[in-house]
Design a protein around this nucleic acid. Structure first.
Lengths: 225, 225
DNA sequence: AAGAAAACATGACAATTATCATATTAAAAT
DNA sequence: ATTTTAATATGATAATTGTCATGTTTTCTT
């Protein structure tokens, strides 16, 4: 029983519906990679012929807009899959994936898994549930982007990162992002993100230890309007 | 062979993978409705126990934000399904559906179609493809909302409506929206939407016949930065 | 350890967008 | 047909956010 089998089950929780045989076969043809921080894993427009299973590290999924800014749409962490949509659609990727720190991934060729998707209805129904959930999340992001201020969006981004990816033993956010990354998550200028974070600090909502951010008053952040 | 069978095949183009037997059965248990303009078909938080198949008319899918504004996330027209996600997820709807004009719909109970989704792998794979496509579109909207100006977003909304839903014989957009609806699509104040549309008119990019809008210079709209 | 480069920070100002006030016009109701 | 209501329009102003300049700190390189 390969290590990939366990890894894959945890994340893409749809994969729990695969049979043992299916998992073993997939596990056998995986390839492991180490990806260095800052590396572009795949680019916008690139055709993916498989999925990456993230064993360790974090990456961002972003899309370049015409004004040259890179909008971060989603972050993928240890225990999740990268490039799921390539399994289902023949279109090229609409997003770029970039490692935010050193990563360990394993690659599963599309050819290995697509037959399961088409033959195992329970499996594909589970994947469907996953996508429906992603779609719902995307709706929420659209509304936030359209209706909320930079201050609100940044507060929510901090809360989201805190709740979804957790904190280090010292209470700082476990994911270390540059100010530019924060700007690209909330869709604002880097200077604006810096200013708002400074403001949060002055107000005692967050504190910083070097580049690390610690949320001091999560209720206060939630109260921002 | 019921009329619904044809209707359903056209739109949710995933339904093409259903067998004839499956379609006939579904067709038999459908219920037809007439929905008047302005009617709320379902609300945010409501649990849907089926899908609506739009035979005629248009509706908007929107989500109320905390500031009281209603962000339009998607528009559903004749030949499309409404509430697909309820088939797949047990979560309640995150969106509200409101008829933009008088509509003809038929309702298919979830119980009738869910078994097919779980037993017919080709069918559910096709649905999966559809959702992957929707997700890609949602990414694009997020980037637009985050990175583009109101002027750009409104120009793109006009082009989108023009290209996706077509025009009347006199060249006006076939979908008639209020200025407030336009504001809620691009995520801005009603006054701002009105101002930008007036500006477009002054610049000769669009013209108006009453409330109807006609695109006069689509290349000009696309050139807006 | 010193220098170069990148990231962070902040001020000054411009551009964009929201809000409030108030007309004007169009649509609906009686 | 006339009143009432809702939608459209526009000005004035405030608030938010972006851009450019510049300085400081941190990180990386050699």
């Amino acid at each position: 029983m390969g290590k990939c089998e366990q890894c894959i089950i945890k994340q893409f929780n749809s994969l729990k519906s695969l049979t043992k045989d299916e998992l073993v076969r997939i596990s056998n043809c995986k390839t492991s990679y180490t990806i260095k921080k800052g590396t572009v894993i795949f680019e916008e427009g690139e055709t993916l012929n498989g999925v990456y299973c993230v064993k360790d590290g974090i990456c961002k999924l972003s899309k370049l807009s015409e004004n040259g800014k890179d909008q971060i749409v989603k972050m993928v962490v240890k225990g999740q899959l990268l490039g799921q949509r390539s399994l289902v659609s023949d279109e090229s990727s609409n997003l770029q994936a970039t490692a935010l720190n050193d990563m360990e991934v394993c690659f599963i060729p599309k050819s290995e898994i697509i037959a399961d998707l088409q033959k195992n209805p329970k499996f594909s129904f589970d994947v469907l549930k996953d996508m429906a959930h992603d779609l719902r999340e995307a709706d929420d992001i659209i509304v936030n982007m359209a209706q909320k201020s930079v201050r609100q969006r940044l507060a929510e981004a901090l809360i989201y990162i805190h709740d979804s990816f957790g904190v280090n033993p010292d209470g700082t956010l476990s994911i270390l992002l540059s100010r530019e990354d924060f700007a690209n998550i909330v869709g604002t200028a880097t200077e604006s993100a810096i200013r708002v974070l400074s403001q949060f600090k002055k107000e005692g909502l967050i504190s910083t230890i070097g580049k690390q951010i610690k949320i001091e008053d999560i209720k206060g952040l939630k109260r921002i309007e």
